[in-house]
């Protein structure tokens, strides 16, 4: 990753976050797909982001290995007319759907397109994992409520309860990152060992 210049890394970062201006998308994607090092960076940013937000959001399988296998399979596929890519949406099983791919007539930019498709498949898979975790693993907690705290003269904004039984309010991933950072460096307590450390090690955080 270190070999990439900072501009390229910025672009990869923006792509990961979906913040890239539309005009730059094609150019950045082409540059990314042409450079395996960039693909590695792209993957690492996903993993780092996911791990920081929550270990649960980290991909549950070796997705790069999966991509490599898929690419090998694609290379071995006989040429057939038309391109059909089906993505099952059976997210309930927590499995990333099998992908059936028929390669079309080769075109001048075939290798580039293949990478594009791989990136698409992987993005879908990662999105699936993220969405699945966000929507299905929200633990029960009494419904969202607003409550004013009037125990002190100092004005205090209303307190919002972060997670809900129905999952109608998606958690703020940045808050989760900061919670994780607080758990990591925060345990400045005389009750830290063993109770505090074991508490933080055992308890990943509230509802995911």
């Amino acid at each position: 990753m270190d070999e990439l210049d900072s501009k390229a890394r910025e672009h990869v970062c923006a792509l990961v976050d979906g913040c890239l201006p539309e005009g730059e998308l094609a150019q950045v994607l082409s540059a990314l797909l042409a450079d395996p090092q960039s693909v590695q960076t792209w993957h690492a940013y996903h993993v780092v982001g996911d791990v920081l937000r929550s270990p649960e959001l980290a991909p549950g399988r070796s997705d790069l290995a999966f991509l490599e296998r898929l690419e090998r399979r694609l290379a071995e596929e006989p040429e057939r007319p038309g391109i059909v890519a089906t993505h099952s949406s059976a997210w309930n099983s927590k499995e990333i759907a099998p992908v059936m791919v028929d390669m079309g007539t080769p075109v001048a930019n075939a290798p580039v397109f293949r990478w594009k498709m791989l990136a698409g498949v992987a993005s879908t898979a990662l999105f699936g994992v993220l969405a699945l975790n966000l929507w299905t693993e929200v633990n029960p907690k009494p419904g969202a409520q607003m409550s004013a705290l009037n125990k002190d003269a100092q004005p205090l904004p209303p307190v919002v309860v972060a997670d809900t039984r129905a999952g109608s309010m998606i958690r703020d991933p940045r808050l989760d990152e900061l919670m994780a950072a607080h758990r990591q460096l925060g345990g400045h307590s005389a009750l830290q060992v063993p109770a505090g450390f074991l508490r933080n090690a055992t308890y990943e955080g509230p509802a995911r």
Partner: peptide, 11 residues
């Protein structure tokens, strides 16, 4: 504003 993250932790 404030958010109750469940348990004793608030933000």
């Amino acid at each position: 504003g404030a958010t109750d993250m469940g348990g004793a932790t608030h933000t």
